[in-house]
Amino acid sequence: MGWLRGVGRRRRDLGPVAAGLALFGFGLAEIYVPLAPYVEGDGPDLTELSDGWMAVLTVLLAGYCLAVAACGAYPRVAVVLAGVCFIAQSFTPLLPESPATPLTALIVVCFACVAMGGRHGPAIAAVSYFVSAGIETTIADEPDWAFIAFVALAVMGPAYAVRMRRAQVERLVALAAERETAARTDERLRVARELHDIVSHGVAVMVLQAGAAQVMLGSDARQAHESLDAVQEVGRDVVTELRRLLVVLRGEGSLERLPSLRHLEPLLTGVRAAGVRVDVTANGDLGRVPAAVDVSGYRVLQEALTNVVKHAPGVTVSVAIDVGHTDLRIHVVNDGPRIVRRSDGSGLGLTGISERVELFGGTATTGPGKGGGFEVRVELPLSGNSAAPMPSSTGASV
């Protein structure tokens, strides 16, 4: 499509050039092949003009046509050039009001300057037109300001409407570009969040299992092998999730493999393999939860369990999932110490939970539990009136 736009742009650039050449041919016919008014005495007899005056008129004609040819690319320069030529011809035996070419050229370039001449285009066009037309009528001793004003309104009025239309189109194009940039930024953030959800959970489990294998390697080889097998299994899951995300980013995602709160066993298996005991209670019909809310609820739960694996290994976690009439509620609490070990990270996990919930207009509360440990409470509306887009097969927004 790029070459088509290029062809269209070249055609627009060649249009004024073709108009200028056509006007030049018509003007030569007016000068060197005088029509009836000049022969019958209503205008000057061009056959009696000297070669010098004919050369001057030809140069001025070339100036008019050059102004028309350049009015698309350089409208302000073109209107000044046409005005200068119009004034100069006012001092020749052939006034610019007699042939059609001078006035036609001046009107065309004034229209172009008003429509496309930038911030000062209308003012430059108005000065060039009124000054040149005023000087010409003064020299001709026939000042007709009513006609001059009528022509100005007839030409510059529509030109100004075109100018406003072009400005509106430019604003819409700029707005579309801003929205596209914002959409790209949002998409990068969503992908980054999805990568964090996928990698953070898997890597945390693998690190703990690898550490356990290292401890057990000398004393309990069977347990060490089991830990290494768990590392391998979690690694495969992470690779699978990453492949799914890449498939979605290529636009080939399928809704058949959406993470769901109805299928928590793979997630819970990895967490339990890391030494964390998890009890899950689900109330309500998870089947009526919209897909976007379901995937986000799954990711919130995944992040909450990953935080437990990282900061409070060995504790017991209680998970309550409740599907109400208007919202989905998820409550995750562990029985660990009130003050748990913090990682060296920047707390992106909890931030990611808050961002996901905010997309749906929900609420998220995180902090130490009343009876010790740490808890995460999330409420996600089921109405679907959220700003969140439909998730892909990995939960990535598309």
Rank of each mutant, 00 (worst) to 15 (best):
V173G: 02
L267A: 04
V308F: 07
V162Q: 10
D237M: 14
T365P: 06
F360C: 00
A82K: 10
G373P: 06
E233L: 15
V114D: 02
I330C: 00
A312P: 05
H263F: 09
Q302E: 15
R377W: 09
A174M: 10
P96V: 03
L60M: 05
G218Q: 11
T181D: 09
A149S: 07
V278H: 05
F360M: 01
L208H: 13
G25P: 05
D186Y: 12
V398M: 14
L4C: 06
V80H: 08
L60I: 14
R341W: 08
T138Y: 14
V205N: 03
G253L: 04
D322Q: 00
A388I: 01
V68R: 07
R193K: 09
G157Y: 15
T101I: 11
T306R: 13
E178C: 07
M1P: 12
G349V: 03
V7H: 08
V79G: 00
E379F: 04
R9F: 13
V205K: 05
E187W: 15
A273H: 14
I148M: 13
L258S: 02
P313C: 04
L35D: 13
D335Q: 11
F26T: 02
Q223F: 10
V151M: 15
A388T: 00
E379L: 07
A67G: 01
A291L: 07
T181R: 14
G352N: 09
L258C: 08
R165K: 15
I124A: 10
G384L: 07
Q209I: 06
W53G: 00
G121I: 01
S296K: 00
A73V: 11
I353L: 02
R5A: 14
A174F: 08
L175V: 05
M116T: 13
D335R: 13
V376W: 08
G83P: 07
A274P: 07
E226T: 13
V309L: 07
L103V: 11
L305V: 06
L359W: 11
R163G: 02
M216N: 13
G373Y: 11
Q214H: 12
D45H: 13
